[in-house]
Simulated assay, not measured.
Amino acid sequence: MINKVYVALIHYPILKKDGSIVSTAVTNFDIHDISRTCRTYNVKNYFLVSNLPAQRKIVERVVEYWTKGFGSDYNPNRKDALDIFRIESYLEDVIEKIEKIEGIKPKIVFTSAKPRNNVVTFSELSQVIRRAEDPILILFGTGWGMPEEIREICDYDLEPIRAKSDFNHLSVRAAVAITLDRLIGEEICYNS
């Protein structure tokens, strides 16, 4: 069921270049651009996950400005896009929220630019999404990617975008847009 697709951008736990676990900084683009993409593809909710209270407070101020402040009148399209935006401290909170909304735990999709074995193709996952009764949560990482412990809890491990390219370093915003287009495309879905 294509009307039960959720997206989460993970800022914690994230890998640092040396393999250690860190929290990454939220950017304005993480809020606006991914919200707009998710709204365009009728994603039910877009969650940004950050365990840092100061980061969450900044995000909440930005969202409030565009949904309730001057920005809501200045750019109603941005307000519409941000209506699906949510912020949570941890991935577990996101899973719990979706389970509360849908009455069932979501199937979770891991994404990464790194080549891996036993991945599902875009075409295969697109068919799963179209047929599934369960909600689907697609995870995107920041920094140097999500750690293995997140991959281990996922139901699907999606193939990388341009895995065979000699250069594969898209921004997460571009990766979200390409992924959603490949999985959902032009099909219209209506949130109920």
Rank of each mutant, 00 (worst) to 15 (best):
I95W: 04
D33K: 11
K68V: 00
T67Y: 12
C38N: 01
D181V: 01
K44Q: 13
N117E: 13
N51V: 00
S165A: 15
A113Q: 09
L158D: 05
T40R: 03
V109G: 05
K57T: 02
T67A: 08
R36E: 07
R56Y: 05
E149H: 12
K114A: 14
I129W: 01
I108E: 06
D30I: 03
S35G: 12
R61F: 04
Y12S: 14
D155T: 05
Y6L: 06
S112L: 11
G145P: 06
N168I: 01
W66G: 05
I95N: 13
R86S: 09
E186K: 10
L139P: 10
D83P: 03
R131V: 05
D30K: 09
V63S: 07
D30L: 02
A25M: 09
R36K: 14
S20I: 06
T27Y: 04
H169K: 09
D181I: 00
D166S: 09
D30S: 04
Y46W: 05
S35N: 11
T142A: 10
R151W: 00
G143M: 03
Q55W: 08
E152V: 00
T111F: 02
M1C: 11
C189K: 06
K114N: 13
E187I: 08
I153Q: 02
A132K: 06
E152L: 07
K16V: 01
N168L: 06
H169D: 07
E99Y: 01
K44G: 09
I31P: 05
K114E: 10
D181R: 10
L52Q: 12
E64F: 09
K16D: 13
I150K: 01
E159L: 03
L180A: 10
S23G: 06
E92D: 14
K164W: 06
V5R: 11
L158C: 10
F85E: 11
P106I: 00
C154L: 07
R78E: 10
E148A: 06
F47P: 15
S165D: 14
T121S: 15
D83M: 08
I58W: 01
I98C: 08
G71P: 01
C189Y: 15
V120Y: 06
A113K: 05
A175I: 04
F140Y: 04
G145E: 03
A132M: 07
V62A: 13
I184S: 13
F70N: 05
F85W: 01
I34K: 03
D33Q: 06
I108S: 08
S35M: 08
K107G: 13
I10M: 13
S171N: 07
D134M: 09
D166T: 14
P115Y: 02
D157C: 13
R61M: 13
S123R: 15
T111S: 02
I150H: 00
L170D: 01
W144M: 03
L137K: 10
D80H: 07
R162E: 14
Y46P: 13
P160Q: 12
S35T: 14
M146E: 07
D33T: 01
D83K: 15
V5G: 08
L91M: 09
C38R: 02
A177D: 04
D80T: 00
V176Q: 10
S89A: 14
S171Y: 04
K57A: 14
T67I: 00
Q127W: 07
F140A: 04
F167K: 08
T27F: 08
I98D: 05
A163F: 08
L158P: 10
